[in-house]
Structure formats: structure tokens, C-alpha cells
């Protein structure tokens, strides 16, 4: 029975921004806002999606899109409101996950260099899924333009992810 409060930095604020250079290239980490996330599972859910399906390293559009997570699972981003539960008509399972993830935006010409501190993530290695371990944490990573990446971490691990991103940014500052 002991008080470890002081051993763990208090959680970051969503307005906090990390700015630095990685391998001499600019990089900026900030929290990103997403209006709605719907987790949808079903046998044909990837092929029947009416909105763009985004894998790695495809670039997500501005409007609604679906992140390809598993063979039978997508995460709909900024789609329409849905009812949680088993959807008889479409034979899909639906859960609102809007509050389940925290989104970070990693932007700049050094963004991928920073992500390579935590994951073997390469543009020339495509993947059907955006799910991967980053800094040892489960994450979803997709691009919103050539040099901007959105990283979704579970809410409970967002502080760990922020801490890992800031540590990586700090420790590669002396590099190059």
C-alpha cells in the first residue's frame, strides 16, 4: 500500500503539442479530433462498405471512411450515427467506440521518421490492416496526406503513447 502518484506524470492536455526535429526533419505531434468512431464487425463488412476503405498506406479522405482492421472488422470514422448491438438487416455487430480511442496527429516531413522509432512501418510495405503495435501499444495508423499520420491508441493507453512519442522525439533530437 503506497502512493505512487509522483512516479507517473499527470495526464497530458489535449491542447498539448510536441514540436521537434527527427533526423533533421520537422515533426509535430498533437491531439486530433474525431467526431465519431463505430466499430463494425461482420463477415462481408469490408467488401460491402459504402465509404472508402482505408488500409496501409492509403490516404484517408476528408469525409467519412472506414479503417480496415481485420478480415471481418472495420472502424467507421465520422460516419453516421448507429445503434449499438446486432444489426439483423446487415448481419453486423455494431459498437460505438468514439470515446474508446484517443487520436494523435503526427505531421511533417519527419513524421514517418518519428513513427519508425516505435514501429517498423514503411510506405513500401502495404498492409490490409491499419492495426499494429506501435511503441509496444496496440494502435491504428493511417495517413491523411503525404506527410500526416493519424494514430489511434486506446483511451487508457493514450498517456503511455504520448509519453512514448515525446520520449522518442526528445531522444532523436541529438541525432543527425
Amino acid at each position: 500500500m503506497r502512493d505512487d502518484s509522483h512516479k507517473w506524470a499527470a495526464p497530458f492536455d489535449v491542447s498539448d503539442v510536441l514540436i521537434g526535429e527527427v533526423d533533421g526533419k520537422a515533426c509535430r505531434v498533437s491531439s486530433a479530433s474525431i467526431n465519431r468512431l463505430s466499430l463494425i464487425s461482420g463477415t462481408g463488412v469490408r467488401t460491402s462498405s459504402q465509404i472508402p476503405l482505408i488500409g496501409w498506406p492509403e490516404i484517408a479522405p476528408d469525409g467519412p471512411f472506414a479503417l480496415s482492421m481485420r478480415r471481418d472488422r472495420i472502424l467507421e470514422v465520422n460516419g453516421s450515427a448507429r445503434t449499438d448491438g446486432w444489426d439483423e438487416v446487415n448481419s453486423v455487430a455494431i459498437s460505438d467506440m468514439t470515446d474508446g480511442y484517443h487520436a494523435f496527429s503526427v505531421a511533417g516531413s519527419g513524421a514517418l521518421n518519428l513513427l519508425n522509432r516505435g514501429a517498423d512501418l514503411f510506405l513500401e510495405t502495404p498492409s490490409a490492416s491499419v492495426a499494429r503495435l506501435t511503441f509496444g501499444l496496440p494502435s491504428l495508423i493511417y495517413r491523411t496526406d503525404e506527410t500526416t499520420y493519424t494514430l489511434l491508441f486506446t483511451r487508457a493507453q493514450a498517456v503511455a503513447a504520448y509519453s512514448a512519442l515525446s520520449a522518442a522525439l526528445r531522444h532523436c533530437a541529438s541525432d543527425g
Partner: peptide
């Protein structure tokens, strides 16, 4: 950098603050 708080990071509560 996997040391200190980043070695075995704990899950954090939405109510921590």
C-alpha cells in the same frame, strides 16, 4: 527510451485528473 514511465506504462483512467 523504454525506461522509467515508458518501461511498463500503466493504463490510465479518464478520471485521473
Amino acid at each position: 527510451p523504454h525506461s522509467g514511465q515508458n518501461f511498463h506504462p500503466l493504463k490510465r483512467l479518464a478520471l485521473e485528473k
